[in-house]
Amino acid sequence: MNNSNKQNPLQRIIPHLADSHLPGREKPLKLAVIALLTGGHILIEDLPGLGKTTLALALASALGLTFGRVQCTSDLLPSDITGLTIFDRHENGFRFIKGPIFNNILLVDEINRAMPKTQSALLEAMEEQRVTADGETYHLPDPFLVIATQNPSEQVGTYPLPESQMDRFLIRTGMGYPDEEIEKLIIRSGSIRDGIRSIQPVVDHDQIIQGIKSVKTGIFLSEKLADYIYTIVTATRNHAMVQTGISTRGGINLADAAKANAFLAGRDFVLPEDIKELAVPVEAHRLLMRPGYESIDREGLLNDLLTKIPIPLS
């Protein structure tokens, strides 16, 4: 096994955070880290009050990264996110004030409350990793992770993300309620929002960059498993209820996410389990259902497909 992978403290960050600060949150935490490592973004769809912000804050603190937050409303303007150019009287010239997007980790709360124009500016910046304002291009910091949240129960006065834009998120997941025991513990010990500020970083910036590089180049994806991913992708394309199956980008993203998962497990090769574990969070939101089947549970459908596709074992 590759030694640099084994020693990367990024692998310890999930147990570290989950044990001390975010009990019962391994799964969304891990998915967020995977998104970070692959340069993707994560969309968390769940009710308010389940610790989405806490998760983002804790992650930023533990990684020693900067953190920004945008609370979306229907009158939020693109410049409220990207920043704007103002006239500086002292210097007698124009100066660009960077918006919250110029942080390593950006929490976009209730992204579906922002109007489409703002959403699209944000999504464009996520994709391009840069902001262009008044003819000037500003690069976003590296690493850059957007954690967007969406409240699935409130639909009034919202602009749901178009299905095509969903493809821009590497991962969509829910938070879910914590287990009974853990929730009782959380209730007893109160909110940990204050404590999070004091979390000391466990990794430095270089190690994160090194980790991202390792995921990109240091993890081996077997030919058999590439076939496996291809089988999953084509199975969704040929499914009777699905109008548009997983795109090629979806396939690439699944491979990347699986590699990141292998990296976090300290392996330098991908196991079929990595792919199986991540197929639903990475791919379910990309399925576009046929008319009449929109209400079908896409995660269930994908899980069902996975139980039918044999895993290459030899």
Partner: peptide, 9 residues
Amino acid sequence: FSPSSGLHE
């Protein structure tokens, strides 16, 4: 061993 599950799983 179901055909759709990996060995580790």
